[in-house]
C-alpha cells in the first residue's frame, strides 16, 4: 500500500538529498580534481573520479603542501593564542556586564554588541598607522618577538576584534545562570572574582567550547587583516599563502584544489568533530 502520504514522504527525501548534492558538489568536484593529472581534469567531467592510473596523481597535494607548510604553521601560531585570549576576554566581559548588576551596563553592552557588526574596512587605514607607530620590532628586544612581529600584531588585532562576538556568545549563556545562587554566594561574602572562578568558570565549559570553535574558524579563515598587516613573507598565514598559490598557478586546478583542502583541513576537522558547537555559535551570532 503506497498512499499519497508515502509518495510525498519520498518526494521530501528526494529534495533533501538533491540539496545535499548541491552543498557538497563544489567540495566533491574539488576533491576528485585534486587527485587528477592535468590531462585528467581537462578530459573528464569535474565530478567523476580519475579514470585509470594515468589520470591519477598525488603530486598536486605534495606541491601544494610544500607551498603552504610555513603558512599553516604561522596560522596555528597566530590563531590559537588569539582564539583562547579573545574567548577569555569575552567571558570576563560578559560576566562583568551580565552577572554583576550596576546601572548603565546596558549602554556599555551596546558598545560591545555593535562591534560585532563593524565592517573591517572602516578601521584598516588607522590600523596600519597604529601598528607602524607601535613598531614592535623597534621597541621589544628581538629575542622576545623572534622575527614574528607580523604574527603578533595580527594575533592582537584578532583578539581585539574578536572580543565583541565572544562577549555576545558568553552573555547569552550567562544570562541563563541561576542568579539566586550567585547572589547567595555574594551575600556569604565571596568576592566577584571568587564567584567567577569557583562558580561561573566551571559552569562555562560548554560555552567555551562553542566560542573557541567558532572563533578559531573565524580567525583561521580571515584574509583581509593578514593581507594588510603582514608584510614579511616569512610571517605569511595560510589564507594569504593559498591566495598566492592560486594566483601563480592559474590553470592548474588540481594544485589549487589540493591547496584549498589543505588550508581548510583544520577548520574541516573541527567542524566534523564539533559541528554541534559550531552550529550553536552560528545561531548565537545575533
Amino acid at each position: 500500500m503506497t498512499g499519497p502520504v508515502d509518495r510525498r514522504r519520498a518526494a521530501l527525501y528526494v529534495v533533501l538529498l538533491a540539496m545535499v548534492a548541491f552543498y557538497l558538489a563544489p567540495l566533491e568536484a574539488g576533491l576528485v580534481t585534486a587527485f587528477k593529472t592535468e590531462t585528467g581534469f581537462l578530459r573528464t567531467t569535474p565530478f567523476v573520479p580519475p579514470l585509470g592510473a594515468e589520470q591519477f596523481t598525488v603530486d598536486a597535494w605534495r606541491t601544494a603542501f610544500g607551498r603552504l607548510r610555513q603558512g599553516l604553521l604561522n596560522s596555528v601560531l597566530m590563531a590559537v593564542p588569539a582564539t583562547v585570549l579573545s574567548a577569555l576576554f569575552g567571558s570576563l566581559a560578559a560576566y562583568g556586564l551580565t552577572n554583576l548588576e550596576w546601572r548603565g551596563q546596558v549602554g556599555v553592552l551596546v558598545l560591545f554588541v555593535a562591534g560585532v557588526f563593524l565592517p573591517y574596512q572602516s578601521v584598516l587605514v588607522p590600523l596600519t598607522q597604529f601598528w607602524s607607530a607601535v613598531d614592535l620590532a623597534g621597541r621589544v628586544p628581538l629575542a622576545v618577538v623572534g622575527g614574528n612581529e607580523g604574527l603578533i600584531q595580527l594575533s592582537i588585532t584578532h583578539i581585539a576584534y574578536g572580543v565583541p562576538i565572544c562577549t555576545v556568545l558568553f552573555r547569552s549563556y550567562y544570562a541563563t545562570l541561576d542568579e539566586e545562587m550567585l547572589e547567595a554566594a555574594r551575600l556569604d561574602g565571596a568576592s566577584a572574582l571568587t564567584v567567577y572562578r569557583r562558580i561561573v568558570l566551571p559552569l562555562s565549559v560548554p560555552i567555551f567550547a562553542v566560542t573557541l570553535i567558532y572563533q578559531f574558524t573565524n580567525i583561521w579563515n580571515d584574509l583581509l587583516f593578514a593581507l594588510v598587516l603582514v608584510n614579511d613573507p616569512s610571517n605569511q598565514v595560510v589564507t594569504v599563502a593559498l591566495n598566492e598559490l592560486q594566483g601563480s598557478f592559474v590553470n592548474q586546478y588540481n594544485l589549487q584544489m589540493a591547496g584549498a583542502f589543505i588550508a581548510a583541513l583544520p577548520t574541516l576537522v573541527v567542524y566534523v568533530l564539533f559541528g554541534e558547537q559550531f552550529a550553536k555559535g552560528v545561531a548565537g551570532e545575533t
Binding site: V20, Y23, L42, T45, P46, F47, Q256, L268, A279
Partner: peptide, 30 residues
C-alpha cells in the same frame, strides 16, 4: 543533513572562491 547544509559556512572565503572559480570554469566547470 543539517551538518552538510551548514558545512560551507565553516570554510574560508579564500577556499570557497577557489572552488567556485573551478565550478564556473567556462569549458570544464561543473
Amino acid at each position: 543533513i543539517r551538518t552538510v547544509y551548514l558545512l560551507p559556512m565553516s570554510l574560508s572565503f579564500v577556499v570557497t572562491a577557489i572552488f567556485w572559480r573551478w565550478m564556473y570554469n567556462p569549458v570544464d566547470g561543473l
